[in-house]
Write a protein that binds this DNA or RNA. Structure first.
Length: 616
RNA sequence: GGCUCCGUGGCUCAAUGGAUAGAGCAUCUGACUACGGAUCAGAAGGUUAGAGGUUCGAGUCCUCUCGGAGUCACCA
């Protein structure tokens, strides 16, 4: 059993035996002892001083004596200001290291037979993926990896928003102004090609709007509706949707196209398929470059009519109610929310209807008891309501639903805006970080033994590691400011810093293999140095960190762990010699320790979707 | 305005209610004739937005104030 658990249980027993009062296990707090004190683990004694009716130090001393007697792994203890510091026999750490060395799956838990769906990315098909998608995708991918590591079987799902106004704009634009051009004819990545037509549509629409604003009718609206504290520009910005829906000729054309699509007009469907096909082709490349894949794709064109049967059931169960105009609502005022529409008066769906239906379909398809939706925090309210409704409907999977909400990615100059052309494209960004990594490799002159292809592959791993680590080290909930320059940093708290520690280890291991060095002598190593102990305690915490990341749906725990471990290793490397160690035992022990660190770093970074190079 | 989230050195971020709030970047100073210097060591930089409260103990929990973001669609 894990030493921390042993201590925890022993402390609970001690409290009961010494002071005659049982205590909850979770009240027993065991922390790694801070560097400046003697010991490996620390028991916080304060929670028991009341029960003990003694001063903290006296109680700590009593508990320490008890533990020393009853926990065989404990070699010594000391008390500082109510903290009980325990030292663990070196033999324990020796055994622990061997355990890690022999288990290449160290950190992973056995399969638990339960399923979890993780939904992420969920793009619109009218334009290419951007920086915001990258954060979403990295979080989703990593979250799936982490849940897999703690034992769940994972279904990675994507809901493709392939229908609606947006794609119609791209379609209309291409049909009207495209002159029959294709991605091939123009030599443009196909999703970008479609996106360019979307942008063109917005441009034409803007031009139409500006002309309209000068008409008499428009000026009439301006005078009538503009609020006193609004500038003319602000008014037109706010009025844009209304204008598009009521007065725009392009708006008419788009709605007409949408209606044709909904009535299965064959020419429209053909155009739709052609353009979506282009987009998917482009997405495929982007996903491939990001190193992610999906197990299941849901298409909104297949799901947008779902959920009406659930609305019927909800009415029958009196969870929902009908208003005079036949529209269906749920009253969530007792849960701190408002009334929410779930079906329009004319019987057509809204976003919520569709999500209700999709939730049930997902469950019917896979029977996942947990389901994670990776969606930006703009939609917090939507998901609160969605989950609350499903709970009230008594859906069996309702308790396992989780919205992994993350903050938007902003640039140092503020929010990304399509209109202002400040959207950072995913493909461009990846190409740029890899290019910079490649330049860096060349500058360092380490390329001597590398072929062109090898160098490109290493540059890819380094560049992507820089980008991914930069994004995933931040707590998901936090809005993050994406600084393009910092994202390609290769030094300090970065992906490449961690990769470098791995490469150092890899260098050692190559030599071990080449010289066929036997590590059995490690068992004779007597005096574990502080730098070594630091690595051991870090490795020891790895499974707990993964569990924590899984419980919190938070990959940043793993990122921070990997950074701390790499940092400790770099220090170890600098302070202590491995091959030139004083004794054969020390050399073997350090090699064994290095291998364990390397293995753990590789797995940890793998959970973040980051690959490790052998050389760099 | 209601609800939700956020506020930690110049900047970007850490810190299951526990010991002197930690890192990185930037700035300054050092360390290879050494297993790879994408490294290491050191300096400087903080009233954790502010005020109360709970607690043996608060960056963390509660209340209020200030500042920022999101949301409050028969859009998705």
């Amino acid at each position: 059993m894990d030493i921390q658990n042993s201590i925890q249980i022993a402390v609970a027993q001690a409290v009961e035996q010494l002071y005659g009062e049982p205590t909850e296990l979770k009240k027993v707090q065991i922390n790694p002892t801070p560097k400046e004190f003697q010991g490996d683990y620390t028991v916080v004694v304060f929670p028991f001083v009341k029960i003990a009716k003694k001063a903290p130090d006296a109680a700590a001393a009593e508990l320490g004596a008890f533990l020393l007697k009853n926990v065989p792994q404990i070699s010594d203890f000391n008390v500082v200001k109510g903290f009980l510091n325990l030292s663990i026999y070196e033999k324990y750490w020796q055994n622990f290291l061997s355990e890690v060395s022999e288990n290449e799956n160290y950190g992973r838990q056995p399969r638990n037979g339960k399923k979890t769906m993780v939904e992420f990315s969920s793009p619109n098909t009218n334009k290419p993926l951007h920086l915001g998608h990258i954060r979403n995708i990295l979080l989703g991918w990593s979250c799936a990896k982490i849940l897999d590591a703690v034992g769940y079987d994972i279904v990675r799902a994507q809901i493709v928003n392939d229908r609606g106004i947006a794609i119609c704009k791209s379609m209309y634009s291409w049909k009207t102004w495209g002159d029959g051009k294709t991605p091939d004819s123009e030599g443009i990545k196909s999703d970008h090609f479609v996106g360019d037509f979307y942008v063109l549509f917005e441009k034409k629409s803007k031009a139409e709007y500006e002309i309209w604003q000068k008409t008499e009718a428009a000026q009439h609206f301006l005078n009538e509706k503009k609020k006193a504290d609004q500038t003319e520009k602000e008014f037109w910005a706010a009025y844009k949707n209304t204008w598009f829906n009521q007065f725009s000729e392009l708006g008419v054309a788009i709605r007409e196209m949408l209606l044709k699509w909904e009535s299965h007009d064959s020419a429209t469907l053909e155009l739709w398929k052609k353009m979506n096909g282009w987009v998917y082709l482009g997405f495929e490349k982007t996903y491939h470059d990001l190193g992610v894949e999906f197990d299941k794709l849901y298409f909104e064109s297949n799901t947008y009519l779902l959920g009406k049967d659930i609305v019927e059931e909800g009415l029958a169960k009196n969870v929902f109610f009908k208003k005079e105009d036949n529209s269906v609502w749920i009253d969530l005022t007792d849960a701190g929310h408002d009334q929410k529409l779930v079906l329009r008066g004319d019987g057509t769906s809204v976003y919520m209807t569709q999500d209700l239906g999709t939730a049930r379909m997902r469950y019917e398809d896979f029977g996942c008891e947990k389901s994670v939706y990776v969606v930006a925090d703009e939609q917090n309210y939507h998901f609160q309501v969605l989950f609350e409704i499903l709970k009230r409907l008594g859906e069996p999977y309702a308790a396992g639903l989780h919205h992994l909400s993350y903050g938007l990615v902003e640039l140092p100059t503020g929010r990304m805006k399509t209109r202002e052309g400040t959207v950072v494209d995913a493909d461009d960004l990846m190409a740029e970080v890899v290019r910079l990594a490649d330049e860096n490799i060349k500058e360092r002159g380490e390329v001597a033994g590398f072929s062109e292809a090898e160098r490109a592959e290493i540059a890819r791993k380094i560049g992507m590691a820089a980008l991914k680590f930069y994004m995933v080290k931040v707590h998901p909930k936090r809005k993050m400011i994406f600084n393009p320059e910092e994202s390609v940093d290769l030094q300090g708290q970065t992906g490449p810093y961690i990769q470098y520690s791995f490469v150092r280890i890899n260098g050692l291991m190559t030599r071990v293999k080449k010289e066929n060095i036997d590590l059995a002598a490690a068992a004779d190593y007597q005096k574990i140095e502080p730098q070594e102990k630091e690595l051991l305690t870090a490795l020891h915490a790895f499974p707990t960190v993964i569990q924590q990341a899984a419980d919190d749906y938070d990959p940043s725990h793993i990122a921070n762990f990997c950074y701390d471990l790499a940092k400790s290793y770099h220090k170890f490397w600098h302070d202590l010699s491995v091959f030139n160690a004083d004794s054969e035992a020390a050399r073997a022990f350090r090699l064994k320790l290095s291998a364990a660190v390397g293995q753990t770093l590789k797995m940890g970074m793998g959970l973040l979707g980051i690959e490790m190079p052998e050389r760099m």
